[in-house]
């Protein structure tokens, strides 16, 4: 492999940037988490009925600020290099979360959002573990990747549905708003994906990418643990 004169530094930059982003996200989350639903409700005040632009925006916002979703996506595309592969797996994820988002909201069924979010946290741990060949090493077999991504996509969609149901949508124009939200989610996902890929490509240029990849996946795993602890604490304390 050709030696890239910048390769040595990109790897560390990649880790440093990733760590800084994680710390910033969790701090911001702490500062802004409460009242997010209220802010969104405020956003919808006076907007009865179908409101396509508003829900497009909300959908995109929920994906771009949904760190649990972003972490899973980052884990999924971590070792995917060809556009075709990335498109296939991201589409499977989108299909999964779209199904449960729409069915979840329309059916009005509410599974405890904390349990769903804990499972989403678990998906992050799972994918990082899988990236580290954990299943092969420990169990001798790797779970079908497409099924995994689609399956967890279903749970991510339930999480999105719960957030949307928090906004107490009017029945009037519900279907239009729901579809707009879904499209917004996909747009937000594309945006987030582009940003993640920029960092990934930078990291991949490093000659220490292999070691860094291991470390970064463990960091993603740690982030997944934090997500799970957070949801379990909410459950334990009876908080929302």
């Amino acid at each position: 492999m050709q030696e890239n004169s910048l390769s040595g530094r990109f790897g560390w930059y990649g880790i440093a940037i990733f760590t800084a982003i994680m710390v910033a996200f969790f701090t911001m989350e702490a500062a802004l988490a409460h009242g997010v639903a209220d802010d969104d409700k405020q956003f919808l005040v006076g907007a009865a009925g179908a409101n396509i632009p508003a829900f497009l925006y909300l959908g995109a916002k929920h994906m771009v600020t949904g760190y649990d979703h972003l972490l899973f996506i980052a884990g999924v595309i971590f070792f995917l290099y060809r556009f075709h592969d990335i498109a296939v797996f991201v589409s499977l994820f989108s299909l999964g979360h779209s199904i449960t988002l729409i069915v979840g909201v329309l059916s009005g069924v509410g599974i405890d959002a904390r349990i769903v979010d804990a499972i989403i946290g678990l998906s992050v741990i799972w994918k990082a573990f899988d990236n580290l060949s954990g299943f092969q090493t420990v169990f001798g077999v790797r779970p079908n990747l497409k099924l995994t991504v689609f399956g967890f996509g279903l749970f991510h969609g339930l999480g999105l549905a719960a957030k949307l149901q928090d906004l107490e949508l009017s029945k009037d124009g519900l279907f239009t708003n729901l579809l707009s939200f879904n499209v917004g989610v996909e747009l937000g996902q594309i945006l987030a994906l582009a940003i993640i890929l920029v960092f990934m490509n930078a990291a991949r240029l490093s000659q220490r990418f292999v070691q860094n990849a291991t470390a970064i996946n463990f960091m993603i795993m740690a982030a997944g643990f934090v997500l799970v602890f957070y949801q379990l604490t909410l459950l334990a304390l009876g908080m929302e």
Binding site: F79, Y81, N131, L132, R204, L205, Q207, V210
Partner: peptide
């Protein structure tokens, strides 16, 4: 050019 294309990393059971 120069991008690493390892399909996965596979630390040992102990490292894992």
């Amino acid at each position: 050019n120069g991008q690493r294309t390892v399909d996965q990393v596979a630390p040992s059971l102990k490292s894992l």
